[in-house]
Amino acid sequence: MAIAAVRAATSADVEEIVRIQADTWAAAYASLVPATAIEQLRGAEARAAWSGAIGAGAGHVLLAIEGDWTVGFAAAAVAGEPSGPDAWGEIGTLLVEPRWGRRGHGGRLLATAAHALQQAGAIYGLAWIPEADEASRRFYARAGWEPDGTVRAFDTGAGTLREVRMTGSLDLKLTT
Rank of each mutant, 00 (worst) to 15 (best):
A2N: 11
V6T: 14
R7C: 06
R7N: 04
A8L: 15
A9H: 04
A9N: 07
A9I: 07
T10K: 14
S11G: 15
S11R: 09
A12M: 05
E15G: 06
E16N: 11
I17Y: 06
I17F: 11
I17V: 15
R19W: 15
R19Y: 14
I20P: 03
A22Y: 13
A22F: 14
A22I: 14
D23S: 08
D23T: 09
D23N: 04
W25E: 02
A27S: 12
A28N: 01
A30L: 10
L32D: 05
P34Y: 10
T36S: 09
A44R: 08
A48M: 12
A49V: 13
A56M: 06
A56N: 11
G57D: 09
A58K: 13
A58M: 13
L62K: 00
I65W: 06
E66I: 02
E66R: 03
G67M: 01
D68I: 01
T70F: 05
G72A: 06
F73N: 00
A75N: 08
A77Q: 11
E81V: 09
P82F: 01
S83Y: 08
G84N: 01
D86I: 10
A87V: 01
W88I: 05
E90Y: 03
I91Q: 02
T93I: 14
E97A: 15
P98S: 07
R99P: 13
W100C: 03
W100Q: 04
G104R: 00
R108W: 06
H115P: 11
H115E: 15
Q118R: 15
Q118M: 09
Q119T: 15
A120L: 02
G121K: 01
Y124Q: 13
W128S: 03
W128I: 07
I129N: 11
P130Y: 11
A132K: 13
A135N: 11
S136K: 01
R137M: 05
Y140G: 02
Y140D: 01
R142I: 01
W145C: 03
W145S: 07
E146L: 01
E146V: 00
P147D: 03
P147T: 02
D148I: 09
R152P: 12
R152H: 02
T160I: 14
E163I: 08
T167P: 09
L170Y: 10
D171W: 09
D171A: 14
